[in-house]
Amino acid sequence: MNVVLWIIASLLAAAFLAAGLMKVSQPKEKLAASGMEWTADFSANTVKLIGGLEILAAIGLILPAVVDIVPVLVPLAAVGLVLIMAGAALTHTRRKEFPMIAVNLVILVLAALVVWGRFGPYSFN
């Protein structure tokens, strides 16, 4: 199960690093034109803040465990992703973008699995 948690955390980290970098490096209008219509509901600074949080979570999923410094940050980063995905699901629900809600919920469950595993039986003691 430890290997499965590493794989899930690595996939989440890669996805959120890419998504976060895109949000912080591109203007809101370009993001909206490329399929992130939800950005119209938020200020440019809020979109950049979300991107920054995604980048921090991606780093937090991997780096603390790899360098063995404060590894409790791994499940805390996963908790952050659970919260981000819950907010994303609420945003997509409000906008009636139902296919995106399923994606958000799958990612939320994967992040919750990392939370459970790393706070529970597969922690980095």
Rank of each mutant, 00 (worst) to 15 (best):
M1L: 07
N2A: 15
V3N: 15
V3T: 15
V4H: 08
I8S: 10
I8C: 10
S10V: 08
S10G: 15
L11S: 04
L11R: 08
L12W: 03
L12Y: 02
L12A: 09
A13S: 15
A14T: 12
A14Q: 05
A14D: 11
A15Y: 07
F16W: 14
F16P: 10
F16D: 11
F16N: 13
L17D: 13
L17N: 12
A18I: 15
G20F: 08
K23C: 10
K23T: 12
V24E: 14
V24W: 04
S25D: 11
S25H: 14
K28D: 00
E29W: 00
L31F: 14
L31K: 13
A32N: 01
A32Q: 13
A33Q: 14
A33Y: 00
A33M: 12
S34D: 12
G35F: 13
M36C: 00
E37N: 07
W38Q: 12
T39Y: 03
A40D: 05
D41L: 11
D41N: 11
D41R: 09
D41Q: 13
S43D: 05
N45E: 11
N45Q: 10
T46A: 05
T46P: 02
V47G: 01
V47I: 14
K48T: 13
K48N: 14
K48D: 13
G51S: 02
G52S: 09
L53S: 05
L53N: 07
L56R: 10
L56V: 14
L56M: 15
L56H: 10
L56G: 11
A57V: 12
I59C: 02
I59F: 08
L61A: 14
L61W: 14
I62C: 08
P64Y: 01
P64F: 05
A65N: 13
V66S: 09
V67F: 11
V67R: 05
I69S: 14
I69Y: 15
I69D: 13
V70L: 08
P71I: 06
P71A: 06
V72Y: 11
V72K: 07
L73K: 04
V74R: 10
V74F: 07
V74M: 12
P75G: 00
P75S: 04
P75Q: 07
P75Y: 00
L76P: 06
A77E: 01
A78W: 02
V79D: 07
V82Y: 09
V82C: 15
V82S: 07
V82I: 09
I84E: 00
A86R: 04
A86I: 10
A89L: 09
L90N: 08
L90W: 04
L90H: 04
T91E: 00
R94E: 07
R95V: 02
R95C: 06
K96G: 03
K96V: 08
E97L: 10
P99R: 05
M100F: 04
I101K: 07
I101L: 09
I101Q: 09
I101S: 04
V103F: 02
N104M: 00
I107P: 02
L108R: 00
L110I: 09
L110E: 08
L110N: 08
L110D: 06
A111P: 05
A111Q: 02
V114R: 06
V115K: 11
V115P: 06
V115S: 06
W116M: 02
G117R: 06
G117T: 06
G117P: 11
R118Q: 03
R118S: 02
R118P: 02
R118G: 00
R118M: 01
F119P: 03
G120P: 05
P121R: 08
S123Q: 15
S123E: 15
F124E: 08
N125R: 04
